[in-house]
Design a protein around this nucleic acid. Structure first.
Length: 185
DNA sequence: CAGTGGATGCTCT
DNA sequence: GAGCATCCACTGT
């Protein structure tokens, strides 16, 4: 079942754990979300912290859309904007279990093992072909497709990765037992 | 398997 | 000019 835009119009702290197990596709290529992180505007590690800038505009809403940013000048990273009205919050998609379009992913990522096709936010965008052109697009229309999970999966919770501020917040969620995580919890 | 360091280029001060 | 919500290759066990 397709996730509707209203699904994302809640706090990221509610939505992010519910994204684990959902299926994310871009132009028909993608897989099951196995790792996400939550960021909100009161969080010093967040792009929303410190206010609106042109490249970060998508993070400030409306919810149910993509926020794509460039990381370390090299990689693209995908967020799903999840926020109640007036808030700037988003879930960073950190890892997928690949299910759709594996050949295309391998081609885009090089001669990679299935395990490392989508085990990191930069890897996901490379494998799915997501660039700045995807920034601001609605998540309930092509090229995006988001399918709800059928059952509630066993969750892992831990500290976020790769940040220097607010490192103590337990806002990283993962699918327990998945071999496709970007790092172990 | 864990830890380290370089590449990379854009954004904001 | 500093600082990155990263990745990969390389090292050492």
């Amino acid at each position: 079942m397709q996730l509707r835009r209203e699904f994302f119009a809640r706090s990221v702290h509610e939505v992010a754990p519910e994204l684990i197990g959902a299926t994310l596709l871009f132009d028909g290529v993608g897989g099951v979300i196995v790792e996400v992180e939550a960021y909100d505007q009161d969080d010093p590690a967040s792009h929303a912290f410190g206010g609106l800038t042109p490249t970060r505009a998508s993070m400030f809403g409306p919810p149910g859309h993509a926020y794509v940013y460039r990381s370390y000048g090299v990689h693209w990273c995908l967020n799903l904007v999840c926020a109640p009205a007036g808030r700037a919050e988003a879930a960073l998609i950190r890892a997928l279990a690949p299910t759709h379009g594996l050949d295309l992913m391998r081609e885009r990522r090089g001669l990679d093992r299935e395990r490392s096709l989508c085990s990191g936010p930069g890897k996901i965008c490379q494998a799915l072909g997501i660039t700045r052109a995807g920034d601001g697009l609605p998540l309930d229309e092509p090229p995006f497709e988001l399918l709800a999970r059928e059952e509630e999966p066993p969750l892992l919770v831990g500290r976020r990765i790769g940040i220097t501020r607010a490192v103590e917040k337990p806002w990283r969620y993962g699918l327990a037992g998945s071999p496709f995580l970007s790092r172990r919890f």
